[in-house]
């Protein structure tokens, strides 16, 4: 592999990391509140609100049902509005975030739902308000599950980011398609795959360690 190609590979890795990292932060920041809202407004939740719950659930499901590649194209106007451009790394971050957020929100919702009802009851009995229950009980108790779910989300996003080449965002996936698939350069293809596997392994390992730490107590 030529030094040029190694340079491209590093560049692709950096692009992928930027896309996935930035979108993961958005998914985390938006997904947790959505998950909390879904749990709170559920019929058996702390503040039942059927209409809000149904609407939110429908929106979440709608985005989850749309394939990422479709979302990428369909969201172009929004992308232009937010980033001022429709090509490049930052243009990919918008659809990537929007696709990852509902995905992560659902996983986080499941973890929050699994918090023992007895704990919520104990919190109510000691005079906790709803906000305090979220902060002192729901989130800390669901944290291992949320971290595990975040790991899955990031891994999934690494895969999805490969399609970002469609908007000229570059990244490892784009590299693999352009050189490996279109120009039959199997060395590049193999190198990309190795790097991707390594990346996924690192993310999964870090996530597993974090979950184990959190649940060991």
């Amino acid at each position: 592999m030529s030094p040029q190609m190694i340079d491209r590979l590093l560049h692709g890795l950096l692009d992928t990391l930027t896309m996935v990292g930035a979108s993961a932060l958005v998914a985390l920041a938006a997904g947790v509140p959505i998950a909390v809202l879904l749990v709170l407004t559920a019929p058996d939740g702390l503040s039942p609100a059927p209409r809000i719950n149904r609407t939110l659930a429908a929106v979440v499901n709608g985005f989850r049902a749309t394939p990422f590649i479709v979302l990428l194209v369909a969201l172009l106007p929004l992308t232009r509005l937010v980033t001022g451009t429709t090509i490049g790394v930052w243009a990919a971050i918008v659809p990537l975030s929007i696709s990852a957020t509902p995905f992560f929100a659902r996983i986080a919702e499941v973890s929050l739902r699994e918090v023992d009802a007895g704990l919520i009851e104990a919190a109510q009995a000691m005079g906790c308000r709803r906000r305090q229950i979220v902060r002192h009980v729901l989130l800390p108790e669901a944290l291992p599950g949320i971290v595990g779910g975040f790991t899955i989300t990031v891994v999934t996003m690494i895969g999805a980011s490969a399609m970002a080449g469609a908007v000229g965002a570059g990244g490892l996936g784009d590299l693999a398609i352009r050189y490996g698939y279109q120009r039959f350069d199997t060395t590049v293809m193999a190198a990309v795959i190795v790097v991707l596997i390594a990346l996924v392994c690192v993310v999964q390992f870090a996530g597993d360690v974090a979950v184990r730490r959190l649940s060991a107590r």
Binding site: A125, P140, L214
Partner: peptide
Amino acid sequence: RRRVGMIFQHFNLMSA
């Protein structure tokens, strides 16, 4: 509720 304490069969302690 702050004047009424409660204890439970399954303790209901926060594991975290």
